[in-house]
Design a protein around this nucleic acid. Structure first.
Lengths: 159, 159
DNA sequence: TGATTGGTGTTATATTTTAACAAAAAAGAA
DNA sequence: TTCTTTTTTGTTAAAATATAACACCAATCA
């Protein structure tokens, strides 16, 4: 992602936080920036290493985990729990509109793609929940497979 | 779950493994049985504690993890990665037919419900993958919320 | 200005998961 | 059967992931 886009995203993130009565502090913005620049999922300890290299040599895991918790609450970051990695959220605003998001995870090159669930599907799911008297709070839809660049026949462009 | 049903399930699991050229050994069957009897998700160390109490006092984590890996491969057990827990699979055979499974996780009482994804939804998802040139290998659909017994208005029957 | 809330730094520790290698058990071939 | 190969288990150790607790600092607000 070009650096200018990242600045834009960070700015929007800041505004978004203010609107909900929270603050995107320096530490939080740093963690988010690392994720935005990575453009692929990172583990908490990957993040820690970069954070140490770029900002504070003696930084501790808690610093990263605290920032991640916050960013997740704000829907600025996703937790890929099946991989124990974190990734910046592509369209943070989609979440505000209660759209469910699918994450397509490539097992070959590690890339993640965030795809909004088609409205039709979202609604069908809602109905399914209703039938089971289930009140949805948060969804986590992770699909593991091979991305467009890593199809069985081809070589992987991202590896 | 009544003990007789569990025996039935274990027996079916054994047959299922044989059909795919694998063996449901004693250790594996023990771990599966503990999960079936629990009828709710357990962490690997919950399992270890029970395994130690019931079978081998000195058992080590590897014993559990190995059994769990095997049982997951056989679609006899699900990993709830967002909770770091494991749960026995309700309808192992549904997976054989490539039906996607949603897991409804209650944040209040911890209960898990396994619901096959309606065919219509499954097909729509497949199309969505096709549009994104994504080859699905495995899906992990975890929905966090409140189950039928733990609706905001009511008390939770399972707590 | 004082009080309250929210955020950070720091240390330590808990929890979850895997690696590696030797020994045993089961399956298959001669 | 006996030998060989593969699969499974036992065991020790350590890596990777995540949280608890407490003191301190900073921002907000009355």
């Amino acid at each position: 992602m070009p650096s200018s886009d990242i600045d834009t995203q960070l700015h929007q993130a800041k505004e978004h936080c203010l609107r909900t009565g929270h603050r995107l502090t320096a530490a939080r913005a740093r963690v988010l920036r690392i994720l935005l620049e990575a453009s692929q999922p990172l583990s908490a300890y990957d993040l820690l290493a970069q954070y140490q290299a770029r900002h504070a040599k003696g930084a501790q895991p808690m610093t990263i985990y605290r920032a991640l918790h916050f960013l997740q609450q704000q829907s600025l970051v996703h937790h890929l729990s099946s991989r124990r990695q974190y990734v910046s959220c592509g369209q943070p605003h989609a979440h505000a509109r209660n759209a469910l998001t699918q994450l397509l995870l490539c097992e070959n090159c590690g890339q993640t793609q965030e795809v909004p669930l088609p409205t039709l599907l979202s609604e069908a799911l809602q109905q399914s929940f209703h039938r089971h008297a289930f009140t949805l709070q948060q969804s986590e839809l992770e699909f593991h497979g091979l991305c467009a660049h890593c199809q069985p026949s081809k070589e992987c462009a991202h590896a």
